[in-house]
Design a protein around this nucleic acid. Sequence first.
DNA 1: TGATAAACGGGACAGCGTTCCGTATAGTCG
DNA 2: CGACTATACGGAACGCTGTCCCGTTTATCA
Lengths: 187, 187
Amino acid sequence: MPRADARRNLDALLEAAKQEFAAHGVDVPVRAIAARAGVGTATLYRHFPLRSDLIAAVFRREIDDVTAQATLLAQEYDPGEALELWARRYTQFVATKHGLGAALHSGDPAYSGLREYFEANAAPALQHLLDAAAEAGTIRDDVDPLELISAIANLSLPAPGGGTDRADRMVGLLLDGLRYGARANAR
Amino acid sequence: MPRADARRNLDALLEAAKQEFAAHGVDVPVRAIAARAGVGTATLYRHFPLRSDLIAAVFRREIDDVTAQATLLAQEYDPGEALELWARRYTQFVATKHGLGAALHSGDPAYSGLREYFEANAAPALQHLLDAAAEAGTIRDDVDPLELISAIANLSLPAPGGGTDRADRMVGLLLDGLRYGARANAR
DNA sequence: TGATAAACGGGACAGCGTTCCGTATAGTCG
DNA sequence: CGACTATACGGAACGCTGTCCCGTTTATCA
């Protein structure tokens, strides 16, 4: 069992990192995170040997949030509606967390674990939404959740030019594509 | 008129940077680029006041290459074929130049000029291909080249998991989507 | 309460982007 | 052809980064 202060500091670091990332991006210096958490840099590095480990841990938390929302929406809304709502939130999620997409696509092996975690958790949650909607007949049933989630993520990458309008339009188009073959089971 | 040695060094720097970027990614140290070019770091910084300026200059060159290929293909192939071929090469281009997509989407104002250059040059070249193909009746005529080029780029971002298979499949799907409404002019 | 393993803070180190400044040289003019 | 000068040069210096080290503090438990 870890010492109580160690656990306190770990929580403080995760929270401080989340705030600093939101305020100044993932490139914020580690010292700033440690300072906000009220600990020394060595304490940070004891819990997260690499800077990327801390980033991964924070994003893992946020992936958990998104996953949880999927199952929540599935319980409270009609299948088709739940899928639509979740896609919208996911778009917002990716567009907001500026570093996430970049980290997942960086190819840096430091984030391969994060990618696997993402695929292992978010994909099944989406699969559940897709299955329910397909059974209700509102969408086609031949889409791979991993490819769909990846496509949504790519389309949601923040375009420096404008707001999230473009992403919303593209994702809407994608969802219409899902509805296109509903019940028809056409290739 | 600039001094002859200055121009020589500028060319050497661009070539060295291109090679270093290809070999070690865009995060390669400035000193390594200067060393390969056989100049001091100050010389590099005199020509490119910011590191990002050098990156932008190299990518500008490569954007020129892609743009030139579009007009070249338009002369040598049927409209539909030229579009297909160019899309394939563009996919390869984005997938290979690991830093390009990240730079264009980073939101870093240092690259906003690069983005504008890209849009000002590549988009018209693609527009030309699209117009020709639309006139030949092989594709629909209601697509914005900027959105299409952006979508292709996003779908072509290298997926850390596998090769370019996924990107090829997604882009192929997109092109099929273009062909879908050909001559029908259906919304 | 005192022993001790666990955890701590902050300074040290190497490497990065960027700047400074004394030196060398390409281009020009007598 | 040779000297003069603006231009360009190299490399050391600076500040900041991620990461590591080590002497000190503290939570835990007999």
